[in-house]
C-alpha cells in the first residue's frame, strides 16, 4: 500500500510542471505534440478512448470464452482429459507479448481484413463499427489489437474461473442433479451463482492486464494523424503504447512529464478497476455465506 502511494506521488510530482504549461485541455483534447517545449499541447482523450475500446473488445471476447472453457474443464470433461487441456491454456500466459504483437500485426491483422471490411461497411449502424481513422488494409486497428489482447488475458480469466467453479460444494451439485437437473441446468443453478463473483474478479484482473499491455498493442496499432472516430477500426495509441513509443525521447523533462501524466491516468484507472474487482468479489462472498 505504501509503495503504491509512493509511486503515485512520484508520478504526480513529475507530471505537475508539464501539466501547468499544457496549452490545451489535458482531459478532452485528442492532440498530442510535445516536441516544442515552449508550446506543449497534449491531451489524453484519444489515448483513453483507444485504451478502453481495445480492452473492451478483449473482454467481450475473452469473458464468455473463458467461462465456457472453465465450465467445460471443471464440470464436463473427466479430470484426466481436462488437466492437459488446462495446461495448454496456461501455457498461453507464457508466450511473450512481443510474439503476440508480431503475430497480430503480421498474421491476424491481414487475415481479419475481410471481416473488418464487412463489419465496417455493412454493420456501420452499430456506432463502434462505423468510421475508421486508419486504412483497413493490414488490420492495424483496435479490432485486431482487442482480439490479440483477448487471447492474452484468456489464461488468467480461465484460471481464476476454473478455480472457483471447481470449488462449488458437491452437496449443492448433487442437490441439483437429484432434482433432475441436466448438467447445464445444474451448472446454471449451482456453479454459476457460486462462482459468479470469482469470475467477475478474474475478468477484472484480465481487464487490468489488457489496459496495461504495451508492446503487443504498439506493434499492432497503426498511428493516425486524425483524431479518434470512436470506432474499433481506428488506429492510434493506448496509454501504455504511447509512452513506450516515446521512450527514446525522454531527455527533455517537460515533454517527459507529459507522458508521465498519461502514465498517472493509466495508473489511477487500473487501480480503480482493481478496487472494483475486489469490491465485487467481496460482496459476492458475503452473499454466499
Amino acid at each position: 500500500m505504501v509503495s503504491i502511494v509512493l509511486i503515485g506521488l512520484f508520478l504526480l510530482i513529475q507530471a505537475v510542471p508539464s501539466l501547468l504549461v499544457d496549452n490545451i485541455n489535458f482531459f478532452t483534447s485528442p492532440e498530442w505534440s510535445t516536441g516544442d517545449v515552449a508550446n506543449l499541447r497534449f491531451g489524453i482523450r484519444d489515448l483513453l478512448v483507444v485504451t478502453i475500446l481495445s480492452s473492451l473488445v478483449a473482454l467481450v471476447i475473452a469473458m464468455p470464452v473463458a467461462m465456457g472453457i472453465a465450465l467445460f474443464l471443471t464440470h464436463y470433461l473427466p479430470p484426466r482429459v481436462a488437466r492437459p487441456f488446462a495446461y495448454v491454456i496456461d501455457l498461453l500466459a507464457a508466450v511473450p507479448s512481443i510474439v503476440f504483437g508480431l503475430w497480430g500485426a503480421k498474421v491476424l491483422g491481414p487475415a481479419l481484413e475481410p471481416l473488418a471490411t464487412f463489419l465496417n461497411t455493412k454493420l456501420s449502424w452499430f456506432p463502434l463499427f462505423s468510421g475508421n481513422n486508419v486504412s483497413l488494409a493490414g488490420g492495424g486497428n483496435i479490432f485486431t489489437a482487442g482480439i490479440v489482447l483477448s487471447i492474452m488475458i484468456l489464461p488468467i480469466i480461465t484460471a481464476v474461473s476454473r478455480e472457483v467453479f471447481q470449488q462449488t460444494p458437491v452437496m449443492q451439485i448433487e442437490g441439483a442433479l437429484a432434482l433432475g437437473a441436466t448438467r447445464w441446468e445444474m451448472v446454471r443453478t449451482t456453479v454459476l451463482p457460486f462462482g459468479r463473483s470469482g469470475y467477475i474478479a478474474g475478468s477484472m484482473l484480465g481487464l487490468g492486464r489488457a489496459l496495461g499491455e504495451t508492446v503487443a498493442v504498439l506493434l499492432i496499432l497503426r498511428s493516425s494523424p486524425l483524431p479518434s472516430s470512436f470506432s474499433v477500426f481506428d488506429g492510434g495509441y493506448t496509454f501504455a503504447s504511447k509512452i513506450a513509443s516515446a521512450a527514446p525521447e525522454f531527455s527533455e523533462p517537460l515533454s517527459t512529464g507529459a507522458y508521465i501524466a498519461a502514465g498517472l491516468v493509466l495508473f489511477v484507472f487500473t487501480f480503480a478497476v482493481n478496487a472494483l474487482a475486489r469490491y465485487v468479489a467481496g460482496r459476492g462472498k458475503a452473499k454466499a455465506s
Binding site: P169, M171, Q172, E174, G175, A176, L177, A178, L179, G180, T189, T190, P193, K287, A288
Partner: peptide, 17 residues
Amino acid sequence: RRTIGMVFQRPNPFPTM
C-alpha cells in the same frame, strides 16, 4: 431423478435462491 426424490444427510438448499 425427476421421479425419485432425494434428501441428503446435510441440508443442501440452493443458498442464494
